[in-house]
Amino acid sequence: MSAVEMIQIWVMAFFTLAIFSFLYKDNPVYRVAEHIFAGLSAGYYVGLIWKSVIIQQLWEPMMAGSWWLIIPGLLGALMFARFWEKISWVSRISLAFVMGNTAGIFLISQLHGLVLPQIKATMLPLGGGGGLTAALLAIIIVLGVISTLIYFYFSKEHKGALGVTAKVGIWFIMIAFGAHFGYTVMARISLLIGRVYFLWNDWLGSLAHIF
């Protein structure tokens, strides 16, 4: 292990432990690490946008003849008008351009790419092959989708048939959320494993090179 690698590991270990120290209680070492983290993350954005947008998407293409890219460049610059109260409304133009475009893509993609295929996939034939398991699953899916949609439908009071279906919906939702909780636990532990493995294997392992 080279000296550079050793320094890298110790720097990583220091900041990892500094953040973990919050588990005991809030402390100055944690706060130092937290503020450095915020600064570095913001600085990362600057480096990234400088390279990937300003240089690669604006400056170089414009120098190569795509002069019209000055328009999105100006639209981007208009965003900063928000910092001056008198002209802050100008930033709405750029924002409206992005919002409108995203809305246009969404309107199509949500209906064409999600709602329709998901509804189609719910209309399953009971006797379409696959035996009893497939038929049972088809019933569970139809019942589950309808009762969940009704549970989240608040335009009418949940009484009568609507109330009964919503009640069935709660049972379905509880099972699904239980599964989701199980998966969430798994996710959080995996992240801890990553950090503990580093501390144990790399950091404590580096001590063996020192002593």
Binding site: V142, V145, S147, L149
Partner: peptide, 19 residues
Amino acid sequence: GVNLAVQRGILIGAALGAA
């Protein structure tokens, strides 16, 4: 089965809302 059905219900509702 159950999870898929509930996620699909939520997905359809959210997609309609987004649209």
